[in-house]
Design a protein around this nucleic acid. Structure first.
Lengths: 233, 233
DNA sequence: GCAAAAGTGTTATAGTTACACCCATGG
DNA sequence: CCATGGGTGTAACTATAACACTTTTGC
């Protein structure tokens, strides 16, 4: 009964994460130079352990390399071209992650090089990591257009102009601020706080917070949608 | 230099395909009973070979089991929970596939059991194959709402009422035929043929064909979209 | 008092929904 | 001649896009 299994060849299984962050102006990806490949920037990655699920492994690796936990993490794609890793055939399952850049204190940065790069100004990357980043950007754009996912990249409290800047960075375009704020506020997903941002502009913009309850409902509703209205075919 | 690789444990890597077909009334999934698991229905699956890409392997397995080639095939998700296969730890990359059901002549059906099941009436499935099917249905709905992907499930020539039936099957709902046909025709993605369907209705409906050139453009446009308009946040 | 960013309203247009009747044909 | 499914138009409503002025406050 096990024969069918035994005669099969196993493969190395890696996980690589595309970690997005937003500094208020530019959408960035976190890259490292380390270990084997000291000359090339690469994604944060590691190996699957024998008793570990894929997402758990991705989360563990992210934690080990950045100290971040409980961040948004979503499976992107499995990359398995023979020859993608020229040394040993490896399958890599890529995850993309959205982190609040302020939470990322440069902790482990002593042991190897780590840097945030603008998604519009990336260095050459190891193996097929460039493809992974490209796909992750597409997915982020695709997803952010329909899910209120952008909040994951901002601090707990943020202003509407900050949120707009983020979306402008994601789509590399500009939005009309009147239409933008109307659209967002019409979702009733944000709670206006009685507190203004200081220091950035003279007038100061009101802070908002995600209404986590409604955010959940929204997310769930989306998963079960019947798109009579949204059917584009 | 190879040490880092050598001390890593490799894993078995399987591919499983959720194959969708449409018989004119009901959206169906192709399942098999075979080999090891003669008692349970399961997805069509097989093992990754040493020098084969993931999609190539999925396509090969699909061809070996059904005789179908050049069908729509898209990676769905990598499933890797420890214990998902209770016999040996296996990572499975699931693909979903859209086939024109008429092309599928019951070729190899002698060697093992194969059957189309309505997506609304599935038997218990092997391992986590039920989760795979659920996710595939979600993905199909999600995708079909925005990409003109449904044509992959219909014959070369089809009528608007057929197309509508398909979308109603996918979303398990009903659409207004006036609005439906307006919406579709407004995309200018279909070419009206000078030929009517016979036998099904008395009047007969006009056949249409996909304008493959425009279909390509549409697909490409979608990949590079900047959703000023479609920003739902 | 002025520069810089925040905040807000209206109108035109486009897209979506809801809805009902006539048409062509095989039996 | 009638039953069955095919085909089409219009009006109300909703969402989107374009556009400009006033407010606050730190300097």
């Amino acid at each position: 009964m096990l024969d069918q299994y035994k005669q099969q060849q196993p493969f190395l299984l890696a996980l690589d994460s595309i970690i997005f962050g937003f500094d208020g102006e530019v959408l960035k990806v976190l890259l490292v130079k380390r270990g084997l490949e000291e000359k090339t920037w690469s994604l944060m990655g590691g190996w699957l352990q024998p008793h570990e699920g894929l997402e758990a492994a991705a989360a563990r690796i992210l934690f080990e390399l950045t100290g971040l936990s409980s961040v948004y993490l979503e499976q992107l794609y499995a990359f398995g071209d023979p020859g993608r890793d020229p040394i040993v055939r490896t399958i890599s399952v890529a995850y993309f992650s959205l982190v609040k850049i302020a939470d990322y204190a440069t902790k482990i940065t002593e042991s190897f090089q780590v840097r945030w790069f603008s998604i519009y100004d990336l260095p050459p990357l190891l193996f097929d990591h460039g493809d992974m980043v490209d796909l992750a950007i597409k997915r982020l754009r695709y997803k952010a257009a329909q899910h209120p996912i952008g909040f994951e990249l901002l601090p707990e409290k943020f202003t509407i102009p900050q949120l707009q800047k983020l979306y402008e960075a994601i789509y590399n375009t500009e939005f009309d601020k009147r239409n933008f704020s109307r659209k967002i506020l019409s979702m009733h997903l944000l709670i206006k706080l009685n507190e203004k941002q200081k220091g950035f502009s003279k007038r100061g913009a009101y802070y908002y917070q995600v209404d986590h309850l409604k955010y959940q409902q929204f997310t769930n509703a989306f998963l079960n949608f019947v798109p009579t209205a949204e059917l584009v075919l």
